[in-house]
Design a protein around this nucleic acid. Structure first.
Length: 422
RNA sequence: GUGGGUGUAGCUCAGCGGUUAGAGCGCCAGACUGUGGCUCUGGAUGCCGGGGGUUCAAAUCCCCUCACCCACCCCA
């Protein structure tokens, strides 16, 4: 009652942490641009049924994890639990496929799932995703996977491992489910309760079971990869070979399956050593566009879990790049404020401490707050039409004439910041 | 959704029926009137997550609730 707190599983991200995010986002944006991807922004809210149809009626996401609500007109809406459905919907709605043969989109933003929170798992979490729409060639899968790898590398986390499998086209999948079901039926009694259920609902999920007995049965069951049709197998092999040639390390993982229903071909997940959960995942979804009412166009994409990735990325704390200004005495304050006003116009970042404190205290505060540069002005300086610029790290202090402020500061802060290193 | 753990000062935690709730770090003030990292001296830390109950007495025991963490389920 007394104090508000963020809803369960949702959190605030403060500037110190955001610095890490922004560092990555900068890299990512540059990388994505170089790969020819364009940003797309879609609503956080969509019709609930969009996700039911795309993600799948029988998935946990749809069955128990969606934030749904009726709006004032009684529309059945949902907070997006993932990004692909929205992008595909936007693509179809705008008939974007009429403008370009191949569309390469990327997006970043919050997703919502009513999960039980854990470390690196939030009810509002952030994904950076990529979708290639309209491309059938295996090289599109290759591009997606190598881009994923580049992005993870850009995050400077220790080496990522990418696992690759193929779920096969709908025909393969149906066929394999039957084969697997028949095989596993004979061992049904040995499965745990969860797997008994999976046998009915989502049979491929049995591959993920950690129960030792289940794992034993799974180990001897016929691998999906052996049951792929020639075209699906060729596609997977082409992807694997091209990745090998490119020097993108991937590991075929025949037990890899995905939780969303729309995947139809190669699927992949990225892992990093410190974490058992995947930090990114994706795959080919050749039937989704048409099943959402669009033309029959193939597609492939992936999403990175940024919350997870960012906890692994080491955050180097550099000194604030902003100049801290403070003044000793009222006259200095009023002269100083018009000085910094000019400096800002020249593009310099300056923040002011307007409080009247002793110089000593100002410096202490600046020191504690890891400020790199202090701009100091008092009566003595005013008398000489000058001010002081102090490098807090080297303790060097420069006396600068008011009329050459901008130029001098730029010289000093550029050269010394660079030489000091970040 | 299932099972378990933890909530005490800004932070890390101690106290686990018995006066007025503690330590370290941090913070504030002074020594030091316009020059920060050290030192010394002094000071404040707080609805003991919230609500209810048991008791002469609750941070401590019980119930409920909220949040976080861990393992499942699932997922990124």
């Amino acid at each position: 009652m007394e104090g508000y707190q963020a809803p369960r599983g949702m959190r605030d991200i403060f500037p110190e942490e955001l610095e890490t995010w922004q560092e990555f986002e900068e890299q990512a944006r540059s990388l994505l641009t170089r790969y020819g991807y364009q940003e797309i922004r879609t609503p956080l809210v969509e019709e609930k049924s969009l996700f039911e149809r795309s993600v799948g009626q029988d998935t946990d996401i749809v069955m128990k994890e969606m934030y749904t609500f009726l709006d004032r007109k009684g529309r059945n809406l949902a907070l997006r639990p993932e990004g692909t459905a929205s992008v595909v919907r936007a693509y179809i709605q705008s008939q974007y496929y009429q403008r370009k043969k191949i569309s390469r989109f990327w997006y970043e933003g919050p997703m919502f799932r009513y999960d039980r929170p854990q470390k690196g798992r939030y009810r509002q979490f952030y994904q950076l995703g990529v979708e290639i729409l309209g491309g059938k060639d295996p090289y599109f899968d290759v591009e997606a996977i190598s881009l994923l790898r580049e992005l993870v590398v850009a995050a400077e986390v220790s080496d990522a491992q990418i696992h690759l499998n193929s779920l096969g086209c709908p025909a393969c999948q149906q066929n394999y489910r039957e084969i697997l079901r028949t095989f596993l039926r004979s061992n049904e009694v040995r499965f745990c309760q969860d797997c008994q259920r999976r046998l009915q609902s989502n049979i491929l999920r049995i591959f993920d079971c950690k129960n030792a007995q289940c794992a034993e049965v799974v180990r001897v069951s016929p691998p999906l990869i052996d049951k792929l049709c020639t075209s699906c197998l060729a596609h997977l092999q082409a992807v694997k070979e091209a990745l090998d040639n490119l020097g993108v390390p991937v590991k075929i993982d025949q037990w890899l399956v995905r939780g969303l229903d729309y995947y139809t071909g190669p699927v992949f997940e990225a892992f990093v050593s410190q974490e058992t959960n995947a930090i990114a995942a994706g795959g080919r979804y050749d039937t989704l566009v048409s099943s959402l009412g669009g033309p029959n166009l193939p597609a492939v994409g992936f999403a990175i879990g940024l919350d997870r990735l960012m906890t692994l990325k080491d955050s180097r704390t550099h000194r604030a790049s902003v100049i801290r200004a403070f003044f000793l005495g009222g006259r200095a304050k009023s002269v100083g404020i018009s000085l910094i006003d000019n400096l800002r116009r020249l593009g310099l970042a300056v923040e002011v401490d307007y409080e009247d404190r002793p110089l000593k205290t100002h410096l202490q505060i600046a020191h504690r707050e890891k400020i790199q540069w202090c701009l100091i002005m008092g009566e003595n300086e005013i008398a000489q039409q000058k001010f002081l610029l102090k490098n807090m790290e080297t303790r060097h202090q420069y006396t600068i004439a008011l009329n050459e402020a901008g130029q001098k500061i730029r010289e000093l802060t550029c050269s010394e910041t660079a030489s000091v290193g970040k």
